[in-house]
Amino acid sequence: MPICDSSDNRPNPSPLLHLEQVSKAFGGVRALTEISFEVAPGEIQGLIGPNGAGKTTLFNLVSGALKPDTGGIRFDGMPIQGRPSHELVALGIARTFQNVELFGSMSVLENVLVGRHVRTRCGFWGALTRHAAVRKEEREARQKALELLAFVGLADQADSPSRDLPFGWQRLLEIARALASEPRVLLLDEPAAGLNRVESDRLGDLIGRIRDQGVTILMVEHDMGLTMRVCDRIVVLDRGRLLTEGTPREIQRHPEVLAAYLGGAPAAG
C-alpha cells in the first residue's frame, strides 16, 4: 500500500473486523475485487469512493445480506462470511440503510424494541403465557429502548408513528434501532444523506458519542466534511478495488484519491 509511512503508528491491536481478499461479482460485473482491510476496535472508519465503487456491496457482505464469491471476513477472529444476517446481529454487527428502512406501521418505540430482538428471548410460548420472566424482559426492553431514544434525542417521540417523523429523525431512529442490538460494530450506510447542514453536524456529534460508548463504526459517507471530521481512518474504494487507506489527512493529500474521487480539489477539512 502506498500509505504505510511513519504517521501510521497505531499499536495494531487485533482487528475487530478483518476483510481478506474479498471479491464479489454480479453476473459478469465485478463489484468488488480482492478487497482487504481491517477495522480496529474503537475506531471510526470511513469508507469512501465514487458511485459504483462497491461500498454498499461491501456493507451487504459484512452484514450478511450477501455472500462473498471468494475471500474471508472475520469478526473478532471468527470467520463470518456467508452466515445469515440474524446470526451476525446476535454476534454484534448492526447496520443502517442508505434509504432508511423503518417499520412504518409501528411506533418509534416499537421500532427500537424490534431492534432489541436479538437481546431478548421471549418466544411463541412465552408470548402466549406471558409469565413473570417475559413481563420482566418486556419492561427492561422498554426501559432500554427509551434510554436509546433519549440518547439520539427522540425521547419525546416514543409513541409517534415512525412513518410520520421528518426524514432526519427517521435516520436517528434507525440508528437507535441498530444500537438496541448492542452491537460491537455499527455499519452506517450514508448516514448524512438527505440531512441539512445542522442535522449533519449533530449526526457527527452523535457518531462520536456512539464510539465513546465503545462501539466501533464503519461508515460509508459522501459528505466529505463529515467524513474528514469524524473518521480516524478512511478506506478508499474505486471501481471495486481498494485504492488506498489512511488517516483523513493522508487521504486528502493522496494524488490518486484526488484524481479519482475529489476531482482534483482538496476537500474541506
Binding site: S63, A65, P84, S85, H86, V89, A90, A94, R95, F97, E101, L102, F103, G104, S105, M106, E110, L113, V114, G115, R116, H117, V118, T120, C122, G123, F124, G126, A127, L128, R130, V134, E137, E138, A141, R177, A178, A180, S181
Partner: peptide, 29 residues
C-alpha cells in the same frame, strides 16, 4: 392479542413492513 403485543408479534409486523430491515435487526424471518 398477547402474541401480537409481544416480541414475537413485533417481529412478525416487522417482517410485514420490511423484510429486509427485519433481517438486518436480527429477526430470523
Amino acid at each position: 392479542r398477547r402474541l401480537i403485543d409481544s416480541r414475537v408479534g413485533r417481529a412478525l409486523r416487522a417482517i410485514h413492513d420490511s423484510e429486509n430491515a427485519a433481517r438486518a435487526v436480527g429477526v430470523n424471518t
